[in-house]
Design a protein around this nucleic acid. Structure first.
Lengths: 212, 212
DNA sequence: AGTTTTTGGTGACGTTTATCACCGTTTTCA
DNA sequence: TGAAAACGGTGATAAACGTCACCAAAAACT
């Protein structure tokens, strides 16, 4: 493992048992992804637990040919990418795509099960992360039901802005449409309206949120 | 504890350590609910882990005045009602209503945390159940996005039918509408159409699915 | 028995959203 | 440099859905 990766590990999990660090060093596998890369694809079977050490990924679901964003997973707070394959061998029910350059630690499932019992700090992390994933998904589900596309777009833009800590969002209308599970024309019309409302400014492949 | 409740416990968790059974006997609290009762309400803080020993409950979310069904939790496969309050003190993000007479075992959170580390069989159950809850929620979210109301209604009716193992569903249009987060008129129109299509027969407060 | 509530049916209407068609501009790439 | 692809804009149209208004039958209640 690179020293850089060890630093990320320490940052993400500052208080693991020393023995667990050693085990992770021994059995963990590190992968680096450029922005926009698929980390895992819906339908695949994987035999490791992916943990985001640095970067951001978005989880996508696909159903009936429609793709849509579920929620984000990032290093720090909620960093574990998938659980549903943890104790049962099942195909993943979503895909994961990096939002920026991302460093992923992969732990073999057999070891994860072992450590889960052996190291309380480890099981605590998994459970806490699981909770956060569940909450994020629930929030998304609520928004699917209760919000129209305009409001969902606004939330999406604000989220992107917060994520990068910048008012400038470099995305095409098509990309946004895919994330929200709708079509480009719809996004074009709404951004146009939001521009007229003074909420944002449009440039080519670039939306600038206006400070309020 | 009643002998009946102990039987339910054994049925739900046939292979716990004997010591854990004893601890549950000592610290568990049993509640019985009639059909239609609220077990917990969204926004409440609870300091126990509710486990369905017998019966079925449905989880509801409420947002912007709209109520809608998330998924079912029942004794056996996925019986743990909530997780998001397990290690963090937060308000519940959904409500739980019984679908039939239901027996719930409540475990104090402090003990749950303790047992989670002490008994691998216990943590395994929690994790597995957590997984199932997540999967059910994800499935529901996908359906919110990809299916129209007609298809969601059909799935809903088939699910109800399977749940009770009967083609007769005793519900009013209003109840169904609330579950699906829509209005009664919409349900009335669709059931009418489905009746014409030969998918079901309508009676008062009672829908009969036609065998295909 | 008479009133109220619940249930279900239906027409009319407006909003939201998806889709199609077409256009001009910019970017990419061979 | 010239063709192809990506990007964004816009009008027309239709389907899906929520809402309002109103009605009649059945059930519950006093």
């Amino acid at each position: 493992m690179e020293p850089k990766e060890f630093r990320y590990l320490k940052q993400c999990f500052p208080s693991l048992e020393q023995m667990l660090y050693n085990e992770i060093l021994e059995h963990g596998n590190y992968l680096s992804f450029d922005s926009g890369a698929y980390v895992v694809k819906q339908g695949a079977y994987i035999d490791f637990l992916p943990i985001i050490l640095k970067g951001v990924i978005k989880l996508y679901a696909e159903e009936d040919g429609v793709e849509f964003l579920l929620y984000y997973v990032q290093s720090g707070d909620s960093c574990i990418l998938s659980f549903n394959h943890l104790f049962d061998r099942k195909p993943l029910q979503f895909s994961a795509v990096t939002e920026e350059d991302t460093c992923v630690l992969c732990l073999p499932l057999a070891k994860v099960k072992e450590w889960f019992i052996k190291y309380p700090s480890f099981s605590r992390i998994i459970i806490k992360d699981f909770q956060r994933n569940f909450e994020d998904l629930l929030q998304t589900a609520k928004e699917f039901v209760c919000l129209g596309i305009e409001d969902r777009l606004i939330k999406y833009l604000l989220h992107k802005s917060r994520l990068r800590n910048s008012a400038d969002i470099h995305l095409s209308h098509q990309t946004i449409a895919t994330d929200l599970g709708t079509s480009r024309e719809v996004i074009s019309r709404i951004t146009k309206k939001l521009e007229k409302d003074g909420f944002l400014l449009q440039h080519r492949r670039h939306i600038e949120l206006v400070e309020l």
